[in-house]
Simulated assay, not measured.
Amino acid sequence: MVSYTILVLAVGLERVAELVVALRNARWSFARGGREFGRGHYPVMVVLHTALLAGCLAEAWHRPFLPWLGWPMLVLAVAAQGLRWWCIRTLGPQWNTRIIVVPGLPLVSGGPYRWFAHPNYVAVVVEGFALPLVHTAWITALTFTVLNAALLTVRIRAENAALRIAAA
């Protein structure tokens, strides 16, 4: 359980690092005329992602570590982090946790964006079930997955609309 707690806390620290990058990138975007979209769902996203980490820790106290499930889920959770940071690196200053579009900038089509329209959300989905299942926290995995699917429906719709407006 100690190792799992360290893992979840490390993911939490990774989230803090993302927020630092996002704040820096938001300043960059706004300085270039960036416009924010989809503000209404952002607080829900913050609460949901925070609840994922809290749920992992709370539920794991009552669950066993099952090696046949935990090790493959750990590989997926680590791979999700790799994909997330590949997205961040590929988008550079255009990456953000918020939807901020700078008019006139071309859409990024390199890196993982060659294969997926929204690769960062692939990472979020994979992490959302894999991280809890590392320590058999199946209720957290299921709850996050269902709620995140609803949130991503709203978020991707808002992001696509923002990109269409910016391209016009």
Rank of each mutant, 00 (worst) to 15 (best):
T5L: 12
T5V: 14
L7D: 01
L13R: 06
E14F: 12
V16C: 12
V16R: 04
E18K: 04
V20N: 08
A22S: 15
R24C: 08
A26Q: 14
A31T: 12
A31Q: 14
F37R: 02
G40W: 14
H41K: 02
P43Y: 13
L48S: 09
L52P: 00
A54C: 10
L57W: 04
A58C: 12
A60W: 06
W68L: 11
G70C: 03
G70T: 08
G70A: 02
G70P: 01
P72K: 12
L76H: 09
A80W: 02
Q81D: 11
G82T: 04
G82C: 03
L83Y: 03
L83Q: 05
W85D: 07
L91C: 09
G92M: 09
Q94W: 10
V101P: 07
P103K: 00
P106S: 12
V108C: 14
S109F: 04
G110M: 09
G111Q: 05
G111H: 09
P112T: 07
R114V: 07
W115T: 14
H118R: 09
P119R: 06
P119K: 07
V122W: 12
V122N: 07
A123G: 12
A123W: 06
A123V: 08
V126N: 07
V126S: 04
V126K: 06
H135G: 05
H135V: 06
A141Q: 08
F144D: 06
T145D: 04
L147N: 02
L147P: 01
V154G: 01
V154M: 11
R155S: 03
I156T: 07
I156P: 13
A158C: 09
A161S: 09
L163H: 06
A166Y: 05
A167T: 07
